[in-house]
Amino acid sequence: MKRFAVLLLCGGFFTVAPQAHCETVPDDLATQIVTHLGSVSERTEHFHETRELGVLTHPLLSSGVLVFRHPAFLEKETLSPRPETLVIDGDTVSVQRGGHVRHILLAQNPALALLATTLRAPLAGNMAALRQAYTVTAQGDMGAWTLTMTPLSEQAHKMVRQVVLSGRNNAVESLKVIQANGDRQTLMIDH
């Protein structure tokens, strides 16, 4: 029992992201892309992930399965090199790793909340949620698009520098996250 509270206390280490409001002109293409993505009510995809961390001499590689169910369930199951299941469901996150399950409330951990929005909002077709956290711009066309997202708030800037999502029609091909400290995370969907 103690473990969860401890984790939450650690979560408190990160500062709260204030409500950001969006004043950019609606980007037709971006809205169109996200709406298209949201039209798929359920998806199961295999992924390969590369994480380049500033403190490590070589990148960390992992692979697994990504499951999304409309409107708010996202499961990222890493199969190798070490099994782990991350479930974002409603307003809680649970992480199962090495036999332990941790439950964390999104409201209690802004960094995790931002991560959840980044992964889930595009798949849910939730443009409003995305625009609360990010300035969203789109390039290309529906056949081959790229969504570039920059955090709105100063707090979020301290965690994430940029997120780039690319794909075709209603399929996601890759997700790149550049952390504030320069760490890069690239998630490729296998097709």
């Binding site: 990160f14 991350l86 996150v93 991560l115 760490d183």
Partner: peptide
């Protein structure tokens, strides 16, 4: 290192190090 490899690793990496 194991913690950094976690999906939520980016959230906790500063603390772990």
């Amino acid at each position: 290192l194991d913690g950094l490899g976690s999906s939520a690793g980016s959230v906790f990496s500063d603390m772990l190090l």
